[in-house]
């Protein structure tokens, strides 16, 4: 209740400060991530190594193993967090996310099909990101085509229902495909599906970085449209938004960001659900603040999960994605209980 006494300028400053705070938090967990692992490095040496000093051993560990993994984690977090915000706002549904709308299952099915039918071995997974992306876009397009009618205004309920139904269909086919896979392929697919940061080569990371930067910049440019759509399709139309066109563009951006993140990082779809929720509690509904905040929050979660996987012996070899879910579910349930 105290909130409403604040003036607009104060609220704005408040939100900027909160986002800066989130970034600082991200930096801290990032550095913590550099320190921790099977070969522990103290904080001072980490800083020294990053700025060019350090021993050969610390250089190898940090530049060779930890930085790529952490950078990938940050990117995946940003991609999933931003994508979740867009999907939730587009569909006016807090449960919307690449995972719940069938887009994830579509990506995953394509990857499975590819691994099962085309490649002989899984040594060259270079095409995987592209496949996950194509799969995500195709499945999203099918959901959009089935869930909308040309002569009718958009209905978010219809789209969500279509997404859920198609998701079930995709994942059923995917599960069936598991039976025809040999053991090596099966293990890869299983690990990929449960979320493992595998694409830790600098080439992959730079591709993902450029990809997310481009998509993210366009998304930030469209935030004012996204804000208008958040008021309802009718209101947005009245304000001059071409809802169907903007919806398709924003959905494309969301699917593009989530599929690319997932392709390189593995299945982290739960982040797309939890990241936006946490961020919304911190900065509110304005997507100009919500998208970056959700990205940072998701990145923090994924790094925290990764630290646990890397550093706590009993958790070792468990895919990070599973940890993200384990970390987020209690918080998510807490949000649900409190919202009543």
């Amino acid at each position: 209740m105290a909130e409403r006494k604040l003036t607009l300028a104060e609220r704005k400053r408040g939100r900027v400060i909160k986002i800066v705070f989130l970034f600082v938090l991200l930096l801290l967990v990032f550095l913590l991530g550099c320190c921790m692992g099977p070969y522990a490095i103290d904080f001072a040496s980490v800083i020294k190594t990053i700025f060019g000093g350090g021993t050969a051993a610390t250089k190898l560990v940090i530049f060779g193993f930890r930085l790529p993994r952490l950078c990938l984690a940050v990117l995946v977090g940003f991609g999933m967090g931003a994508s979740g915000v867009i999907m939730q706002n587009l569909l006016h549904n807090d449960l919307a996310s690449p995972g719940t709308l069938g887009v994830a299952d579509g990506s995953s099915l394509f990857v499975t099909l590819y691994v099962a039918l085309i490649v002989g071995t899984v040594d060259i997974p270079v095409l995987l990101p592209v496949l996950a992306l194509i799969g995500g876009l195709i499945s999203a397009a099918i959901i959009y085509l089935l869930g909308t009618k040309r002569k009718k205004p958009l209905s978010s309920t219809k789209l969500v229902m279509t997404g859920v139904a198609m998701g079930a269909c995709y994942s059923a086919i995917g599960t069936f495909m598991m039976y025809v896979l040999d053991e090596t392929k099966l293990e890869f697919i299983q690990r990929w599906n449960s979320g493992e940061l595998w694409g830790t080569k600098w080439e992959y990371i730079s591709i993902l970085f450029v990809w997310l930067s481009v998509f993210g910049a366009v998304a930030m440019h469209e935030t004012k449209t996204l804000n208008a759509i958040n008021l309802g399709y009718d209101i947005a139309t009245g304000l001059g938004v071409n809802v169907k066109v903007s919806f398709a563009l924003l959905a494309f951006l969301a699917v593009g960001m989530s599929s690319a993140s997932v392709a390189f990082g593995g299945n982290f779809f739960f982040l797309g659900l939890i990241g936006p929720h946490i961020a919304r509690r911190i900065v509110g509904t304005d997507t100009r603040y919500l998208i970056p905040a959700s990205g940072v929050a998701s990145a923090v979660i994924i790094i925290a999960a990764n630290i646990l996987v890397e550093d706590v012996e009993i958790f070792m070899n468990i895919p990070t994605g599973i940890f993200v879910s384990v970390l987020s579910v209690p918080y998510f349930l807490y949000l649900l209980i409190r919202s009543r």
Binding site: L8, L231, D234, G238, G240
Partner: peptide
Amino acid sequence: NKDIAKELAVLPQAPHAPGTLT
């Protein structure tokens, strides 16, 4: 669509806004 929105404003029945907006 944007040019129409400069000539004509529409208010649907019982519109709903996110409560945290000022």
